[in-house]
Amino acid sequence: MGILQRITRNIDNRYWDPGLIGFPVKNSYTAGVAGQRFFEEIKENGRIFGSKCAGCDLTYVPARIYCERCLSGLEEKDWVDVGDEGTVYAYTEVHQTKSGEAKEKPSLIAAVKIADGLLIHRLGDCLPEAVHIGMPVKAEFKPKNERQGGIEDIKYFKPF
């Protein structure tokens, strides 16, 4: 077959399936300098921290070690307890799993605004029809002995 001839039916084209060897690789991510401290506060004390750039008057949540606007380093003194409450900045009702199959029960995902930051998380204890943009929400933490130092230490955000 030459370059100008075409396979017009997909089914005629063969594909090669790796079969025996898939690609079973994994990732293991550190939380970073800021992330380590951010999750330590959640795990040990149930507190959410941001870091504030005084020059740009911005409080990042989750806390970071630098301001993305001016690239100043943000240090210990710039860390602020931003409380465990925020507002729904945007939300969506999810009907499919990540591989595209129908979920048994739809779930609610929200961007929760805390200080100048947005945390993407689940909404819980909340009916889909009740959610609205601007709705005040509060973090529901897992019991302390179940917390592992990750974003899942917050079970979800719920209205209050």
Binding site: R14, Y15, P18, S28, Y29, A31, K43, G150
Partner: peptide, 25 residues
């Protein structure tokens, strides 16, 4: 140190293309 673990869990099947199709055949 907190680690977040993840697996890609994805599979591919590649169209062989015209020339390699004949090579394999």
């Amino acid at each position: 140190i907190f680690l977040t673990k993840d697996s890609l869990d994805c599979a591919y099947a590649w169209d062989t293309g015209v020339a390699i199709n004949r090579y394999l055949a």
